[in-house]
Design a protein around this nucleic acid. Sequence first.
DNA 1: CTGTTAGCGCTTTCAA
DNA 2: TTGAAAGCGCTAACAG
Lengths: 360, 360
Amino acid sequence: MDSNASPPSSPRSAARGRSPRASGRVTLSDVAQAVGVSAMTVSRALRGERRVDPLLVEKIHAAAERMGYVPDPAARALASQKSTQVLVLVPLLSNTLFVDLIESIHKVLFAAGYHALIGVTHYDRAEEEQLLRTYLPLRPAGLLLTGFDHSPAARKLLADSGIPCVHMMELSAVDQPSQLADQTPCVGFSQAEAGVAITRHLLERGRRRIAFCAGQLDARVMQRAAGWRTVLEQQGLYDPALELLWPRPTSMALGAELLTQALQRDPAIDALFFCNDDIAQGALLEALRRGIPVPERLAITGFNDLPGSDQMLPPLTTVRTPRGAIGAESAQMLLQLIRGELVATPRLDLGYELVVRQSS
Amino acid sequence: MDSNASPPSSPRSAARGRSPRASGRVTLSDVAQAVGVSAMTVSRALRGERRVDPLLVEKIHAAAERMGYVPDPAARALASQKSTQVLVLVPLLSNTLFVDLIESIHKVLFAAGYHALIGVTHYDRAEEEQLLRTYLPLRPAGLLLTGFDHSPAARKLLADSGIPCVHMMELSAVDQPSQLADQTPCVGFSQAEAGVAITRHLLERGRRRIAFCAGQLDARVMQRAAGWRTVLEQQGLYDPALELLWPRPTSMALGAELLTQALQRDPAIDALFFCNDDIAQGALLEALRRGIPVPERLAITGFNDLPGSDQMLPPLTTVRTPRGAIGAESAQMLLQLIRGELVATPRLDLGYELVVRQSS
DNA sequence: CTGTTAGCGCTTTCAA
DNA sequence: TTGAAAGCGCTAACAG
């Protein structure tokens, strides 16, 4: 046979002009050729697989570095059916709570070579579902979702995808103490217990008519409400008129509004338990404006310990929620799931801390 | 030839058991087979290319829908060297400013079939550079960056990538009014002019000793400072002692601290121009705590008109920045660049609005 | 420990 | 207007 014979043999090797479709980037086989090994070996070496000659590994790393090789995530995702993206869905970015959550997630994932793809649901199950439909085809390596409140279709998407998923901020219900807990991976704390703690604190301070004021009535807010209600019912102090629920988003202005409404509805109210610090801050300022002494005439408490709560007049009593830790631990747990490792505590309770300042 | 003859012909067609590497998802050829056309036609039809029989288009859409076909972004990116991701880099998420920016970017991009990939630089050029290194290989369709302050290496990465890019929040410098402006695409407003406007307002209110108090000394803050300085110099009122610059992040607590420092340094100061609303709010609360009458004894102004500024005691005078519009217009401009369209105004000035409330 | 082969699912290119 | 062929850059699967 003539060695000048046509195509079949080594199609890429002598290719100087490259294929018309080539992207121009340095590829795995470029590096392989330079080092004098196969592309597969380079692939293995660069991914840090075992069973590659350490000397080769070194040479390959050097060549890759020198040639400016950067792996192509699309090719990798297509070939391996995996990506390094982790989809993170939060309800909102305008609450520092979720920003803190995201920051710590990002830190843990990034260090492990994964990337957070952030989606915002605006507390809307339909929007969450659409985001899942949009981003699941990207084959994220894992999912980090806020809460458990998903549409049935979203649940199905999640289940069908088979992608590991950790739920953040709240804990799955444990029906019977004697019974084994639900094994759905989740990291958070008991929102209901935190609601109980704040309410008990107000009772200890001698408050009798404690109103619960909330906006943005998501599942977690309602759990706090349940905690509050339980305590008041135990004490025979519960009255439905003490429940001020506002379905739309929270804001400082809403706090002023709810304080006004509460006192109009029942002037005997002596404490306001707000579901979030931002409305509590607004209420505090409204009290200042109207000359209502806090805490003497009215105790005010918030939730989450957001920036500025310690600066208020008076500083706001609140519950510090461990969102940084929740983000970090969720990401860590997800990484374990992605790697197929056993998760020791798939239902991780990180607790909360009552921060008593001068507003109560 | 025996029709039972082996492989070469139609390798995929009769494949029931599929290849061992197949992902299980419905592919383009599945749809093609169902409709009885080639995969190429399905590809064209689904992407809405012209020159496909309208009847076929309809049949193909129906089949795709029925079979649950979802395009594979990785395969698409690999084959076309394009993705639908747009990389959005912001300094911070804990400032509502950037959250508003992101929200409106997301809305515009999502509607056009693109997705925002959010990265946070923490005002750190090295971190920005690392993010670019990490995400540029994803072949984002475009880039949306905050400001113009990039490391030299980052500049090179940007230039080499050839990916369209719009800079947000500030405007490129125009050296000579008569000269053609720099054509780097950007959407924002003149930070310096806004600084001038606030300072003039304070002068009009009869203030003489106006301090500039800032944290997080990024380029935009320094431009506001320059505006302030220019005005004071024109009036012969400039004094370096009036400049209180704090390199670390802003917070309400910092506002309290800077107010204290300013009055210690010079008790004659009669106005404080804060670079951001959060520190201004902190200062306002500190004034309240110390019984300093605002604005009688001390005028206080902020920047950005963040949530809560209208709730303060007294409500805060500030500059409303058009971040929503900046996000939307930047995204729109980027889409034009991606599509190779001509951009009418590559340097888009969206202005600002002085919001005079009772603190000045 | 290393290499070969054969795709992943899509789109570019060119021909009909 | 449609299709066939080829390949984007990488890795799974199997040999050796």
